[in-house]
Design a protein around this nucleic acid. Structure first.
Lengths: 231, 231
DNA sequence: AAATCTTTACAAAATCTTTATAACTTTTCC
DNA sequence: GGAAAAGTTATAAAGATTTTGTAAAGATTT
């Protein structure tokens, strides 16, 4: 469900490409491959990766040049790979906008760790997108797991919160009893719709002004429930 | 005149300290020196450097531990220096919050280039947070690792402090038992939630006026705990 | 020896589950 | 069309279960 982190791996040697790919996919990254600088620049623009791992020595266009081109319009973290230990090359790559420089032969664990560092850097900047859902007087902070009504914290039990979070994450959509049971309670609960009923009722008493005239959690008779932003 | 960029250089070998200092000052950086981990943590809090260059092998407290301590309250870029080429060490350092890892002997130009990269990253999101957290009558000095209640020092054990520091660094957020165990005790503790229970209880007896009616560390039944600033 | 961490046990508290009934909708049948 | 029947949904509350608070004993480290 959550979007995977995309990594673009660029190397002209198929063996290395496949080796890195296998290791990244095992960690559940979405891997894209390119085999030279020209392809790399093109793919960077098209797939918008979260990190780029870029070999230096390649035909058509080398890694440093590709790095420079990508930097003209993007600041995606770029990790340069090279067989050359030469300091001059490192300095040049880092000055051209590379974020890291790893010399071959490299340990895959080190590369993975450096990718995590790169993602940490990028993540810190983009975490400004606050995952707080708002509807009317209601606020659901999905990161902090806190719900507020007119600024006041509403005390919810675990199941109540999880039900609300699921409703809110699918606001506007009609959710069947079965779907709610599956996702909040678990597949082993089959279709004991009474749970949903009882907990929707409890939730309404905690977040609705008039629980028998709900404005957030609406009943869809014979189907299920639906969360809406009132207006 | 523009304020100079501050760099904290930490190494127990005077020769290396002086060498790096000379090169940095030639580039017009403001250099601060420390010779072990304890000094490093203390100076990091006092001078608030823009980058820290940290040797691994040092007396009193090693670089990785110092890095970890600083990360408890700051996200200043940290570049680790080490004579060890071992991949395990690199991965550990990078996982503990280091941003880069350079092996000795290093070329000064490479180090300078990596410092520039670190500054480039930090430039985007300068997080100059005060290393003292306050909530009600409680004061947690994250740099000195000292806790005070109404001005009086509260004596906490290591684990108690680390639990409180983690709670405080995530105040307002509900932290699951597992999350607390992972981050305070370590991933190898699985989900033995009894630890959390026992230590939260001990903490409450030390920092709460009425431990059975906590105002700082709240229980989120079946989920975990949450630290709040009382108002 | 002193301090700290780990483990245990049990009462108290909170939540989840189940049940029963009332209120409401839709369908069936006259 | 309208009343009774059947099926849903809302609601409250009792019962069962799980989790938490707590203190203290045992094990380990300093």
């Amino acid at each position: 469900m959550a979007k995977k982190t995309k990594i673009l791996v660029v190397d002209d040697e198929p063996k290395i490409r496949m080796f890195i790919r296998a290791n990244l996919e095992a960690r559940d990254y979405e891997v894209h491959l390119a085999q030279d600088g020209v392809e790399a620049v093109e793919m960077a623009a098209r797939v918008m990766p979260d990190v780029i791992v870029l070999d230096v020595n390649m035909p058509r266009m080398d890694g440093i040049e590709a790095c420079k081109r990508i930097r003209e319009w993007s600041n995606v973290p770029i990790i340069i790979l090279s067989v050359r230990e030469d300091e001059k090359d490192k300095v040049r790559a880092l000055n051209e906008g590379a974020d890291d420089y790893v010399t071959k032969p490299f340990g895959i664990d080190e590369l993975l760790a450096r990718i995590r560092v790169a993602l940490r850097h990028a993540g810190a900047a983009t975490t400004t997108s606050i995952p707080v859902f708002t509807a009317g007087d209601l606020e659901v902070d999905l990161a902090k797991r806190v719900v507020k009504l007119r600024g006041k914290v509403v005390k919810l039990t675990r199941t109540e919160y999880e039900l609300l979070a699921y409703l809110v994450n699918n606001h506007g959509k009609v959710l069947t009893h079965r779907e709610l049971l599956n996702n909040v309670w678990g597949p082993e609960y089959g279709d004991e719709a009474e749970y949903v009923r009882v907990f929707v009722n409890q939730l309404r008493h905690k977040i609705e002004d008039d629980p028998s005239n709900p404005q957030y959690i609406l009943t869809e008779p014979r189907v299920g429930y639906r969360f809406i932003k009132p207006d």
